[in-house]
Amino acid sequence: MNLELEIGFSSRAETAGFAFRQWRRRVGQRLLRMAAAVAEAVVPERVKNRERMFAELSRDYAGLIAGICLSFARSEEDFQDLRQDTFLNIWNGLAAFRRDSSLSTWIYRVTLNTCVSSQRKKTRREEVQMDELYATLYEDSPTEEIERYKLMYRLIGMLSPLDKSIVLMWIDGKSYEEIRSVTGLSRDSVASRLKRAKGKLADFYNKVKND
């Protein structure tokens, strides 16, 4: 093709320059395609699996994670921080997940560990904030249901972090063996702490109902 005639360059230098830029663009595109192919071949199976797994976990266990974080949270800011930290720990821990336990047990482990490592006291202002948070989180639920959930979290919130962990797993139907593996306690300790926690919950429940 005669570039001078087709495009109307005034000198050979301009023609050469244009040809060089076209060549550079084609080489650059070819290099990018090769790099993408190499990346596709070398890295992504593991990365894609991790991203896919994280997306599935975020979808399937979002409610459970939110419920556990709500049990430990002292304020809306606390709840958002705990949720964020939990998902970050799940993302970081997915690479090391060895499938020696079920996925839901592992989610319990990560979420409970994230929550117990961030414990602090609740102030009066935060109690008010929590009421607003419940209204936001349960926006589709009727008022009577929200009141029942608030009472449930109030009861659970009165336990120590370790007892809370045991009770949450137990009311979700986890076996003693799963509770033992997540909490790190012996089977007898789990049983005795659970029995003690049930007694405390009964006392708290009666006290709250009488109030």
Partner: peptide, 24 residues
């Protein structure tokens, strides 16, 4: 009270699952 907790825990998680806040 334990039965109370069990029933409400499941329905609470289901409600949180449906809620938009859970999916930020």
């Amino acid at each position: 009270e334990i039965e109370y907790l069990k029933e409400n825990w499941e329905s609470s998680n289901a409600a949180l699952e449906r809620g938009s806040q859970s999916r930020k």
